[in-house]
Amino acid sequence: MTAAAQPAAALLQPLPGGLWRGSFEAMASPCELLMERAGEPADDDEGEARRLLQIACDEVRRIERKYSRYRSDSELARWHRAAAGQPGQPVQVDEESAGLLDLAALCHQLSGGRFDISSGVLREVWRFDGSDRLPPPDAVARAAERVGWPRIGWQRPQLTIPPGMELDLGGLGKEYAADRVLTLLRAEGQRTGRDRPLLINLGGDLVASGPRSDGSPWYVGIEQPIGQTPQADPGSTHPTQPAQPTAPAGLIALKSGALATSGDARRFLLRDGVRYSHLLDPRTGWPVQGAPRSVTVAAPTCTEAGLLSTLAMLQGEGAEALLAAQGLPHWVLR
């Protein structure tokens, strides 16, 4: 999708195995909704599937519009304008935003300050383009002075953003949107009496309503590992070696709940052999040391899975320890 004024429409297509696949672009990611077909005959179901897809697409785009840091008409932009216009004066936020801010505050507390939704300004000095260009330390220090959740005035529902500071809910938005879509579609299914198994995938963060109606799980592919293929016997030129049909690698069976991944694939700086992760420690303004390449977590909700994977990444070398203590399935790529 280009930066066109009107976003492209959502697409619906039938898939083998009794599924509808809806797809659309939002939050700079490919979004996908898999729905089991319901009702007989199948033709009747297309309109219903299209309606559910529209609900999903509208909800994701609503959240994107509301919390985008690139749009001047977003709710987030309104907070920043209010802060700039009347410094020190609180702005009143709605119920949904208050819930998200509460969650951000909790994560800040739980992470000892590593998770901070005011850290976005560090991006003004850090450009993670795979190059070796580190920002000058004094520029980092100046930017880091404008970071710090404790200096944000938050007394639900009153928010006060000090001058020069900015909030960014990008670290929560996609996962929250996935959970919201599931909540809406479930409610819709109950309302119409056509509750059906669903899988929502927003750019790799995903949540399932439950198992498929035959009880089988949803299969989620993870990046193909390479190497370690079985070798044929060297001396043998006999061509009828046992055939070894290749199976898709790294398949996760997801019966219910969510999976979310945090990672820095392709977003890093490399200097003198040191890889600087795009993950910045808001306490210092410098990249987190020893962060895994990516962390995937399975949790009951996508929001939680996403937060846990981010908190684990921010923990650097301690990512595995943090995850091990939670008792949830997880995958760490180093």
Partner: peptide, 17 residues
């Protein structure tokens, strides 16, 4: 504590949703 983070987040997210 085992799963403390998980439980705290799960409760908060449930409230949010």
């Amino acid at each position: 504590g085992t799963g403390a983070l998980h439980l705290a987040l799960a409760a908060a997210v449930t409230g949010l949703l």
